[in-house]
Design a protein around this nucleic acid. Structure first.
Lengths: 221, 221
DNA sequence: TAATCCTTTACGGAAAACTGTAAGGGATTG
DNA sequence: CAATCCCTTACAGTTTTCCGTAAAGGATTA
């Protein structure tokens, strides 16, 4: 079981609940909390330098903006920095996010060990997650169905360039001009037309407005 | 000071923090928690019938969906029902929402007494809010600027009908047909054209796609 | 080398979006 | 009552979107 745990979470009241659960149900001795990504990172770094490193990081994904200038502003940035600093560190994410696609990215690209979706059973799940992760397995909240989203179409960088411009209200002709100006190729109106039409098929959209609305709602652009 | 408080909040770990704070800092004797809007409402009703009614309701706005069939599915519905049941009940909302326009609506239309925005200082603010509300004043988290949003363009119901259909990929002609079918008026293509053009001006959008992208990002549709 | 496949590009036509003008009707005001 | 304002609607003209066909060029394969 873990001995030293760091919690990064900007909701004061949520912190309390987690700390209570870890202390009482898992008998974890050393629990520290941070409200900001930057300070959490500094604490991890300091502990590592003093050879008293943390075993587990429990972090949220979203942190409210603050007046203080920050280098790290989101959970994903914190995770990336923390894993670079200390690859052995186990990471459990505890967040509102329930989009399987995004959670999948956390496991694939950010190599997290557990994901707990905030909700009615958060605390019970978090305890289970810590148990599971402590024996080198991965944990995901049962209500999240990661397999559903296997055949989701991925957006490559070029598609994203087009989509973002469309969402910003540019016409196809304007996008053509912009691409030519910035030496982005291909840059014919015809190609851009075809790309967007392909995305209509992939995402089941009837027209540009529909497509952009869908992708915006899903947080993909 | 309040004697009997009900907390409606579907995040288990958040509940814990609030209960602790109320008990320790405010010496409130009777604190009950509910994870669902419906059960919260039933508890309010039961207490009223037994002449042991609650003084204060602290509720979130968003509740995760559950497998159980519910009559009330959001905090606003709970507030509406609760105020109808027991007009004297004080209500403090504790939620993620930080859009001043939406918070303003809670005070105007739902007659809430306090609003605490979940964040780093939630607990401290909540204690302040309870203090303030207990002497018949209203409380709003200091970071929320209700006055800023005075000149924000409001979307009326009719505009929203159009916008939602556009976001769902309907063409203007299809919207016209739909409106006529559902006896929604006005329903000429010309009027719908004009409404949308007005929204372009108000929100600084270049075309429909741009408008829908903006409003979707802002969570207005 | 020839055949094949894929991507880019050009082009054309129907449909839709966008804009401006103008007419009609209901409500308000002097 | 007439003048005015506001909203709805019709219509027309330009631009843009959307979709199909087809040609050109590059890379891969037999």
């Amino acid at each position: 079981m873990f001995k030293k745990v760091l919690i990064a979470e900007d909701f004061q009241d949520t912190n309390r609940g987690i700390v209570d659960a870890l202390r009482n149900k898992l008998n974890i001795r050393e629990i520290q909390e941070e409200l900001y990504c930057d300070t959490a990172y500094n604490r991890l770094k300091l502990a590592l330098e003093k050879e008293a490193s943390f075993d587990l990081l429990i972090t949220d994904l979203f942190f409210k903006e603050s007046h203080i200038d920050r280098k790290l502003s989101s959970g994903t940035e914190l995770i990336k920095a923390a894993k670079t600093l200390q690859p052995s560190l186990k990471v459990i994410v505890n967040s509102m996010e329930d989009n399987p696609v995004k959670i999948k990215v956390l496991f694939h690209d950010y190599k997290i060990d557990g994901y707990v979706c905030k909700g009615r059973h958060s605390l019970v799940e978090l305890v289970n997650a810590i148990d599971t992760v402590s024996v080198d397995k991965t944990y995901v909240s049962p209500q999240i169905n990661l397999s559903v989203s296997n055949n989701v179409f991925e957006l490559d960088e070029y598609d994203l360039l087009i989509l973002k411009d469309l969402a910003d209200g540019f016409s196809k002709k304007e996008i053509v001009e912009k691409f030519k100006r910035e030496n982005i190729s291909p840059n014919s109106e015809s190609t851009i037309d075809k790309r967007v039409s392909k995305l209509f098929d992939e995402f089941g959209a009837k027209n540009t407005t529909h497509l952009i609305a869908k992708l915006t709602r899903e947080g993909k652009i």
